[in-house]
Amino acid sequence: MLPVHLQFPIRGGDFHSAGEASSGMKKALSKLGVDPSAVKRASVAMYEAEINAVIHAGGGEADVEIFADRVSIVIRDHGPGIPDVGLAMQEGWSTAPDAAREMGFGAGMGLPNIQRNADDLTIDTRVGEGTALTILVRFHRPAPTAPGPEA
């Protein structure tokens, strides 16, 4: 069977709409009945990646493919790229501009947090060309089917 394929634009510097892509993906996973803990990991990881694209890279696009056992999320931007991935993976390291930091973003937790929530993370980055993050989250447990007390 074909996966469900969702696409979302990510607008650079637009903090008002930031998070819409990950929220759209989360809605889809919930509607599909994916295990809540996997939904949470996928949405937290995707949100961080989406915010990174908004803050650092002038936006980009998100491609989401949902399979019966996993979701694959690609966040692609055409920003400056990451010169030192190892450094960027360290907690607290940040190059976020002041405007972003003032809003509570850019605490340097982005990439490490994505890593923590993803089952697999691939970073494909070229300085001056852009970055593509591929986040994989597996649905370990089957969808909950036990009805609630009133269902």
Partner: peptide
């Protein structure tokens, strides 16, 4: 317990097809 009333289908494969 979670209440699955908003889900498309209890079976994830079928839910994907419906989605």
């Amino acid at each position: 317990a979670p209440n699955p009333a908003l889900q498309l289908d209890a079976d994830l494969e079928l839910a994907l097809a419906k989605y």
